[in-house]
Simulated scan of single mutants.
Amino acid sequence: MKIEAIKAALPTKKLTNDDILALIEEYSTPIFTGDLKTTLNKINFFMRYSGSDTRYWLDKDERPIDLLSRAFQEAIAEANCDKDDIDLLIYTGIGRGFIEPAAAYHIAASLGLQNAECFDILDACMSWTRVLNIVYTLLKGGRYKRALIVNAECNMRFGGPVFPTVFQLSNVEAIEWSFPAYTLGEAATATIVTYDPDREWEFHFKSRPDLADLCNVPLDGYEGYCTPSERIGLNGINKFTSFGVDLHANAYEESIKVFKLLKAPIDQIRAIFPHASSKREWDKVAESLGLKHLMWHIYPTYGNLVSASIPTGIASAIAAGKIQRGDRVAGLLGSAGMSFAAYSFVY
């Protein structure tokens, strides 16, 4: 399978760690019990410790579909193909405007894709990687000729699953299940792939459903669809709750295990693209593998872009000249679920 093009579009509103702290202070002051200044200092330490610096959110005149359209136009130009050449469209983002129908249908209508079959695949931050694995099999089987994979991870809108609710701390303890929200950025990506028998891909996945309560956005009535846990919904229904420390603690061992399953020649890998959830934590994994020098991080600049993290990382590495056609690369990530993946391919 060949990546014909991979593009990322970022919004324009730039926020620093200090901006995030100011927002937490603004929304927490009316309800906080305890020493808010000390709590803010603790959050500041955690952000800087993780490697966080800046992130980008949509400004008032920007929309998710605008970012996605821009990424698509750049991708289709680089792929040198027509819209009608795309026969499969899959939307992967957690950020979405619809539960029904699949977001892919509205995206196809907006982009003017009339010949593409449409559906969504949702698997938290693993979504883009999971889709690549599925599309690889579909293309290899001859079902489709050219696929477009898109997402628009724009989750920071006012009144959404994160902001301002998760910025409204009532006590210092709430940091435990709220901190990952302060590292989130926004982005949209577009990836165009075709089958190429000379480009074999290797994927390895591992699921840990026993850790499913560590990161959730529960819907109304979720209790009837699971075994309830005291961790789910601590920030409210339809709101983001995430135990970042526990997520990374489990990701460390599992990510090392899954990466070691790769049969691809490690000495030929030019770059490794981790999920943008923490620079420091993924560097720890890479250090254990002896591969820290290969890690390409976007987390310090763009924050956690959810399912858009790795495609944005690859797009930025291409733009920076870090990787070129013919280079072998790898992906490594852990996701809510929990799930873990390592994969390798030749760009």
Score class of each variant (00 low, 15 high):
Ile20Tyr: 10
Ala22Lys: 10
Leu23Glu: 15
Leu23Gly: 07
Leu23Pro: 11
Glu25Leu: 02
Glu26Ile: 06
Glu26Met: 05
Tyr27Phe: 12
Ile31Gln: 14
Ile31Asp: 13
Phe32Gln: 05
Phe32Arg: 00
Phe32Thr: 02
Asp35Ile: 04
Asp35Asn: 11
Leu36His: 06
Lys37His: 13
Lys37Leu: 11
Thr39Pro: 00
Leu40Phe: 08
Leu40Tyr: 07
Leu40Ser: 04
Leu40Lys: 01
Asn41Lys: 02
Lys42Arg: 15
Ile43Val: 15
Phe45Glu: 14
Phe45Cys: 03
Phe46Gln: 13
Phe46Asn: 13
Gly51Thr: 03
Asp53Cys: 14
Asp53Val: 10
Thr54Val: 04
Thr54Glu: 13
Thr54Asp: 12
Arg55Glu: 15
Tyr56Thr: 11
Tyr56Asn: 11
Trp57Thr: 12
Trp57Met: 02
Leu58Val: 07
Leu58Thr: 05
Asp59Glu: 15
Glu62Ala: 02
Glu62Lys: 02
Arg63Pro: 06
Arg63Cys: 00
Arg63Lys: 13
Arg63Ser: 06
Arg63Thr: 08
Pro64Ile: 02
Pro64Ala: 01
Asp66Thr: 01
Ser69Arg: 14
Ser69Ile: 04
Arg70Phe: 04
Ala71His: 03
Ala71Pro: 00
Phe72Asp: 09
Phe72Gln: 06
Phe72Val: 05
Gln73Cys: 08
Glu74Asn: 12
Glu74His: 01
Glu74Ser: 08
Glu78Trp: 05
Glu78Gly: 03
Ala79Met: 01
Asn80Phe: 05
Asp82Tyr: 11
